[in-house]
Design a protein around this nucleic acid. Structure first.
Length: 247
DNA sequence: AATCATTCCAACCGCAAGACG
DNA sequence: TCGTCTTGCGGTTGGAATGAT
């Protein structure tokens, strides 16, 4: 199982997984070119990255896709095509590889009739409550309520402070989304990881999962350095909004 | 029980894009 | 501007597990 340069290939062993986990926990994600050496692994960096992203990373959801996940996948694929990473970004806990595999094995091969059938909403499915993503920026200022994050002055209905943990959502897919923040160590009130000091952006997909979309927190009346470019590819999100709104 | 077919998913490969000097 | 390096993505493959005969 060795490549042309003596780099190991194929299935990962438990020992390799442990070494990779320890390395990521110590140095964080990124800098994949340094990972094989740092971890003491005889693997190429791509293999390390893939193993982490698709298998070892915390919060990866295992098991079958729920009906609402499949439904959302279908609608997103209708909009985005085979842009698996974007689709996976809105399915919390699912990787692009998971989505791609599921699509190719369960949906694509079973033909359009199966897809049509899946598109019909089960009666017990909870409709996702999506708010139109008007603004394109999101403040890094988070306020913490009872150990849970809240967003200050950020929602369409003008609540000054909204406790996101109270957002109603599907019982099956309910997650404490703040627990899956990047570098999810203890977060201080500015959403900065107290372990590594890195600013934590709130992943946009958590809001889609919650059925909530944050509006901008504008500092003063202008967008200054205190405001993160949250929505990034805004045209994409507006397109997505149109699709979801049509449901 | 043995063999063959199918399913499923982890992993690999090649390419494109971005970062950087 | 160009070349190199690194990362991330989508397509594809390999093989273990499972099912059918």
């Amino acid at each position: 199982m060795e490549g042309s340069f003596g780099v190991r290939k194929g299935a990962w062993t438990e020992e390799e997984d442990i070494l990779l986990k320890q390395c990521i926990q110590k140095y964080g994600e990124g800098k994949w070119h340094l990972v094989p050496v740092s971890a003491g692994l005889n693997r190429c960096r791509k293999s390390c990255r893939l193993r982490w992203l698709n298998y070892l990373k915390p919060n990866i959801k295992r098991g079958n896709f729920a009906a609402d996940e499949v439904d959302l996948m279908l609608r997103l694929h209708k909009l985005l095509g085979n842009r698996w990473s974007l689709i996976a970004g809105r399915l919390p806990g699912r990787t692009a590889n998971d989505v791609k595999n599921y699509w190719n094995t369960h949906l694509l091969k079973k033909g359009s009739s199966h897809i049509t059938k899946l598109k019909e909403k089960p009666q017990d499915m909870v409709k996702v409550n999506v708010i139109k993503p008007q603004p394109r920026t999101f403040s890094k200022n988070l306020t913490w309520l009872s150990g849970k994050p809240a967003i200050v002055g950020s929602f369409k209905k003008k609540e000054d402070i909204r406790d996101i943990s109270q957002t109603p959502m599907q019982s099956e897919s309910r997650i404490n989304w703040w627990e899956s923040l990047p570098n999810c160590g203890e977060l201080d009130e500015r959403a900065t990881c107290t372990q590594c000091g890195r600013l934590n952006e709130v992943p946009r997909e958590t809001f889609w999962a919650e059925g909530m979309v944050p509006e901008a927190k504008v500092v003063g009346d202008t967008l200054d350095e205190d405001v993160l470019n949250y929505w990034g590819d805004s045209s994409l999100d507006m397109d997505l909004w149109e699709v979801l709104k049509a449901e």
